[in-house]
Simulated scan of single mutants.
Amino acid sequence: MIIAPDSLKGTATAQEAAQALADGVRSVLADAEIILAPMADGGEGTAATFQGQEITLPTVDAMGRLCEASYVLDGTTAYIDIAAASGLPAVMPGNDPATADTYGTGVLIADAQTRGAQRIVLGLGGSATVDGGTGILIALGATPMDQAGHPLKKGGVALKDIASIDTAQLNIPAAAMEWVLLSDVTSPATGSDGAAAVFGPQKGADAETVAALDAGIEALLQATGVDGSIPGMGAAGATPVSLMWLSTLLHGSADRIHLMPGAPLIARTQGLEDAIPKADLVITAEGRLDEQSFRGKVVGTLWHLAKAAGTPLAVAAGQLGELPDGVHGVQLKDSSDVYEQLFDAGQRIAMSTVQG
């Protein structure tokens, strides 16, 4: 049996969720052979699925307030969640998506380079920002400028006036690293399915602000020459736009930057492609299960792997939407204790397995 949940945002890490589900299963099936494989899809908790040294340092959140954030360093690779410094929960309520930026994430990236990192694996989910990644650029010494040569104000709305990006003070060693961008969405940068339109309202943007942010990202695309229609380019408030421009500028091509879905990569890292065909059951969990869950998220990735292998899949979730045929859903019981909720879900899944 494989237990491979996503994190339940704000209540349980993927590791905690996996352990609670396993405890519930073992209360019914004491001799069950269980493999714990905490999952992520590029969102909050992605870095924690990788092994290495945890580095914690002062930085700023998406609204520019002093905070601490952590990342994982394994030799020459740093695993960083954009949600660690620039995440939404830390600035809600009260986030201003017009001015929120990713500068704090750039601080983590620069720090990782000083500790020997040559590659950044950046989880893009859970950001509070729609700044096209320009906050990261600023932290690395590249300054977005208007037509008159003045630095732009922070955030995505100000990007409507971007004319160029000054690289005179660029931190070249940090900017020239290899980038692996792990996306949990397939959205383009702009338009009705883009970063501002789809995710802006979740970050506190009203209709007027959404339109202004979309115009700002479009202006950034024009200034950088980046193709914003690439699936995933709208992740983390279109953060890949700036990083794609930066890497291409320094290396002459996009060969050193890779934008890809996060969940399949982490599933491979956890060995699930080989393990699932040998398992009797796969159990996963997430906070809310809906149609988005099966589009590049953890549940969708596990569903495809389990379906191909002929292995049953069970999903525990706080809210259950429509499930594909062959997927067993368990809604978490009403409780303020998340361990109790997941333990109970594990119990019920195990009992249904015994009865089935």
Rank of each mutant, 00 (worst) to 15 (best):
residue 349 I to S: 12
residue 81 D to E: 12
residue 116 G to Q: 11
residue 107 V to S: 06
residue 128 A to D: 11
residue 97 P to D: 10
residue 343 F to M: 03
residue 28 V to S: 02
residue 193 D to A: 12
residue 83 A to L: 12
residue 89 P to I: 09
residue 289 L to S: 05
residue 161 D to H: 12
residue 6 D to V: 04
residue 50 F to E: 07
residue 70 S to K: 02
residue 163 A to Q: 09
residue 278 K to Q: 15
residue 344 D to W: 13
residue 298 V to M: 15
residue 13 T to I: 01
residue 331 Q to M: 11
residue 223 A to L: 07
residue 186 T to F: 14
residue 93 P to M: 13
residue 262 G to D: 10
residue 330 V to L: 06
residue 126 G to L: 10
residue 50 F to W: 08
residue 156 G to I: 01
residue 38 P to C: 15
residue 221 L to S: 03
residue 227 D to I: 02
residue 229 S to P: 05
residue 324 P to I: 00
residue 283 I to D: 07
residue 150 H to R: 14
residue 131 D to K: 03
residue 312 P to C: 11
residue 59 T to H: 06
residue 23 D to N: 14
residue 93 P to T: 10
residue 313 L to A: 03
residue 340 E to W: 11
residue 282 V to Y: 06
residue 161 D to N: 12
residue 75 G to N: 09
residue 130 V to F: 00
residue 313 L to N: 07
residue 351 M to C: 04
residue 73 L to H: 12
residue 141 G to C: 07
residue 181 L to R: 04
residue 100 A to K: 02
residue 178 E to L: 00
residue 72 V to E: 03
residue 86 S to P: 09
residue 188 P to C: 00
residue 178 E to F: 05
residue 130 V to S: 14
residue 202 Q to H: 14
residue 55 I to C: 05
residue 88 L to D: 07
residue 86 S to I: 05
residue 336 S to F: 04
residue 71 Y to T: 10
residue 141 G to Q: 11
residue 9 K to R: 04
residue 62 A to C: 14
residue 111 D to V: 01
residue 184 D to K: 01
residue 117 A to D: 07
residue 156 G to P: 07
residue 122 L to G: 01
residue 29 L to F: 09
residue 343 F to G: 03
residue 224 T to F: 09
residue 231 P to G: 00
residue 35 I to V: 15
residue 18 A to H: 04
residue 275 A to W: 00
residue 245 W to Y: 06
residue 128 A to G: 11
residue 69 A to K: 02
residue 275 A to P: 06
residue 100 A to T: 01
residue 239 T to N: 05
residue 331 Q to W: 03
residue 217 I to C: 00
residue 98 A to W: 03
residue 154 K to V: 15
residue 136 I to N: 00
residue 256 R to F: 10
residue 29 L to H: 06
residue 220 L to R: 02
residue 259 L to V: 00
residue 306 A to G: 10
residue 295 R to L: 13
residue 331 Q to P: 11
residue 147 Q to S: 14
residue 296 G to L: 10
residue 80 I to Y: 01
residue 224 T to K: 05
residue 62 A to D: 13
residue 56 T to D: 11
residue 281 L to I: 02
residue 92 M to G: 02
residue 29 L to C: 11
residue 138 I to R: 09
residue 1 M to Q: 09
residue 67 C to K: 08
residue 299 V to W: 10
residue 60 V to K: 06
residue 303 W to T: 04
residue 252 G to E: 10
